[in-house]
Simulated scan of single mutants.
Amino acid sequence: MNTGDASYIKQMNRGILLEEIIKNVSLSRSDLARKTGLNKATVSAQVRDFLNENIVNEKSEGELTTRGRKPILLEINADAGYSIGIDIDEHFLKIFFTDLQGKPFYKMNLPVQNYKLDDVTNQLIQNISTQIEKFNQIYKPIGLIGVGIGIHGIVNKDQEIIFTPKQQWSNINIKDRLEVAFKTNVHIDNNANLSVFAEQVYSEHIPDLFCVTLYSGIGLGIINGNKIYQGHQGFAGEIGHMIIDPKGLACSCGNTGCWELYASEKVLISKLKGNLSVGTLSDNFEKLLGKEENKEIVDEYLDYLAVGLNNIINIFNPEKVILNGMIINGNTPFISEVQEKLKSKMNNYREITSSRLGENSCALGGAALAIKNYLGLNMINYVEYDYLSNLDEIPGQ
């Protein structure tokens, strides 16, 4: 075996062991060897490296009722470092800080002060740099390990922003500037890609998963074989611009009859707000649905939603599809109604559900991806940590 082969095998074993520790929250060395099939000498050597790098720490299992030596458990060293995930949307910047175990500990929700990307970038740097200085003193010795950023538009494989329909940003690279400002690696991707990654990491860890985001436009994130599918140049998932009516409404992309002009929640909200007199949409949603004219509006919306889902299912045959939107997440009967409209005998899938992460998915996915990249893993699994029930209690601004 040459040096290159040995180095490759060592790196592969490193990933296998770290993925298993993360998945199981904590493990003894013997359990780690048993679950991975690696011999104890290999496990011991790798664990020694993990401890030296401060990415893993040891703890006692506690008092045992039987005699004998207490097993020493290994777990990811949560306090050694942290990551940041950012969702750059049209009106808000949603930001999550997560420790090395993927647990969110701080969040920020900032209104966008100016739509120019240079100004948005300045706003990010000004607001986050102060927090980085503070948290670098708390999460030692590693500090900030990386930043993951979601853009609501097309991002190529070189992480350049090719086009955003809302802000009209085109052919811009902010990665280098942010890496200089934050002094760490920055990864930029489409928001739907980060959303589906977060769903897999935090909600249900399966290798074949689709997430359709429905807020202001429609995006599709695809996990295939535990990897984010990006297509030839990174443009995959722009499903909102699938044409469902060739002679339909004109779209900013240049086509007519794009799916998101009929089935995004922005479209549904704009129609419902015509009958909304007081309060917010969420406060009055059930009342609005009780009106006969609104039932027709919603039924038409679900018809269009089902048309697009029918196409996605027939083309990709996904195991599970997650629908993520402000309205759909709080109205699970919509899921049943959509499924009833999927009448084709060619439709084949295991499950369609609403998202448990909601509007937090993109930023959480960015933070989790930064951890995955830093540790050099193929996949990461936080399902057993049950972080989702406490997202509303996380401090922030």
Rank of each mutant, 00 (worst) to 15 (best):
I228L: 06
Y229H: 13
Q230C: 09
Q230H: 12
Q230P: 00
Q230D: 01
Q230K: 14
G231K: 03
G231L: 07
H232R: 08
H232Y: 14
A236M: 04
A236R: 02
A236G: 13
G237E: 05
G237H: 06
G237C: 09
E238L: 10
E238H: 14
E238Y: 11
E238M: 11
I239S: 06
I239D: 01
G240T: 12
G240E: 13
G240S: 11
H241V: 13
H241L: 10
M242P: 00
I243P: 01
I243M: 02
I243W: 02
I243T: 11
I244D: 02
I244C: 06
I244R: 00
D245F: 12
P246R: 01
K247P: 01
K247H: 15
K247T: 14
G248Y: 03
G248K: 00
G248M: 01
L249F: 15
A250K: 10
A250Q: 12
C251K: 01
S252V: 14
S252H: 12
S252D: 14
N255P: 03
T256C: 12
T256E: 09
G257C: 08
C258T: 05
C258Y: 06
C258I: 05
W259Y: 15
L261V: 10
L261M: 15
Y262S: 11
Y262H: 09
A263M: 05
A263E: 07
S264M: 08
S264N: 09
S264Y: 09
E265S: 04
V267N: 08
V267W: 06
L268I: 05
L268T: 04
I269T: 11
L272Q: 02
K273P: 03
K273T: 13
K273S: 15
K273V: 08
K273L: 08
G274F: 02
G274Q: 15
N275A: 08
N275V: 02
L276R: 00
L276K: 01
L276W: 05
S277T: 11
S277F: 13
S277Q: 05
S277I: 07
V278W: 00
T280W: 04
T280E: 04
T280M: 01
L281M: 12
L281P: 04
L281Y: 07
S282R: 06
D283C: 00
N284P: 07
N284I: 10
F285H: 06
E286L: 09
E286P: 00
E286W: 00
K287Q: 14
K287S: 15
L288V: 08
L288N: 03
L288R: 00
L289K: 07
L289A: 08
L289P: 02
L289H: 02
G290M: 11
G290R: 05
K291V: 07
K291I: 10
K291Q: 13
K291H: 10
E292R: 04
E292C: 01
E292H: 06
E293Q: 11
E293C: 07
N294C: 10
N294T: 08
K295A: 06
K295C: 04
E296Q: 11
I297N: 05
I297M: 07
D299F: 07
D299C: 05
D299M: 04
D299H: 08
E300L: 09
E300S: 12
Y301R: 01
L302Q: 09
L302G: 11
